[in-house]
Nucleic acid binder design. Structure first.
Lengths: 186, 186
DNA sequence: TGTACATCAGTGAACGCGCGTTCACTGATGTAC
DNA sequence: TGTACATCAGTGAACGCGCGTTCACTGATGTAC
């Protein structure tokens, strides 16, 4: 096999990021090797450095993609709920509490420990910070169309409670920590 | 240097667990090596396996110690608050939100990702689950003496919000995510 | 209480392994004329 | 449109390195008499 076309190379690069995003979410950045990622993308590990300067550079892009993917799902959930007259933020919260496969673990939970241990200039830290901001804004936008804004409970607290509950459910692995019944929605 | 006395050996073992607990909380289990732990405990790495069957076995004990240490601090905080007529649970929440050195990172946050990725039979997972239970009970005990139990907000939600807020503050590294002003208390 | 011996906590070097990264090479793709 | 050459995406093996773990050894501690 010789050189791929530029279009193919671009597709290969995108697939590496996509596959890495899923693997890092499921198993953590440290626990996944370059060889694992490249194999899952259908290539050999030698070609990795034709696309990325380092594993950290890939991690930053994969982290950003995970947040972008989650935000898009949230928007869909809120839009569907709004179309049915339900509260978008409550729909997001319900969706968020539902069980998902490891590759769809909330990126805030999957990458929090890594982000916390990296300096503020680190590219992964930056992707994490921007990703949290995006998710919070998506959540806030969904609540603004709500005709019954529950006064008194600041939005950030609701958001934090949602995240904290999910963290405890996933890590303790007992449903007792779920804040509400998980719907079968994906 | 030859053999240590049984008393000294016991002290050495306890010091290894204590030092590992701090290092694992600060940097994560994977990022800390046996050699790091032993060096911090004032010994060489060869002696490690005279005390523990594996790194995982140490991790489980270190995790349990971190939770026990946190729970003891919470009890002190609640006791002091109660003696001054303040609400114990609120005092714990204030303390919890305060900035601490990395070695005093909340064990729920430091070990959550690891615990979530381990099976339910794993010793670290077990230590984590029991530790969360202990912290929650400590929190609940502190609130029971509260003459003004805020009705409507379940205790688990308050607890989850506290944890989620802390997770976001530490990982995003921006104080905007703090649920309340952090007091200088240690 | 002393003495001779067995035990075993701790040392320091080595082992195998998997990791991130590098590199010489290949051959299809892209470019210049 | 064809042809000759340069480019470079991908291959597969190798490189150092640090990790968890093992091991032969040491000598103070603990034990038996």
């Amino acid at each position: 096999m010789g050189r791929s076309s530029r279009v193919q190379a671009g597709e290969n690069r995108a697939r590496i990021v996509q596959v890495a995003s899923d693997l890092f979410r499921a198993r953590g950045i440290e626990a996944v090797g370059i060889a694992d990622v490249m194999k899952a993308a259908g290539m050999t590990q030698g070609g990795f450095y034709k696309h990325f300067a380092s594993k950290d550079a890939l991690a930053a892009e994969a982290c950003a993609l995970a947040f972008a993917s989650a935000a898009e799902t949230w928007r869909d959930v809120a839009r569907t709920a709004a179309a049915e007259g339900r509260d978008g933020a409550a729909a997001i919260a319900d969706h968020y509490a539902s069980v998902r496969p490891p590759s769809r673990t909330c990126p805030m939970i999957a990458f929090a420990a890594d982000a916390a241990r990296r300096g503020s200039g680190d590219p992964v830290q930056r992707a994490f910070r921007e990703g949290v901001q995006t998710l919070f804004e998506t959540f806030a936008d969904a609540v603004q169309g709500d005709p019954t804004p529950e006064a008194g409970e600041p939005l950030r607290s609701r958001f934090a409670a949602m995240v904290g509950s999910n963290l405890l459910v996933r890590s303790v692995q007992q449903e007792a920590w779920a804040s509400r019944a998980a719907p079968p929605a994906s």
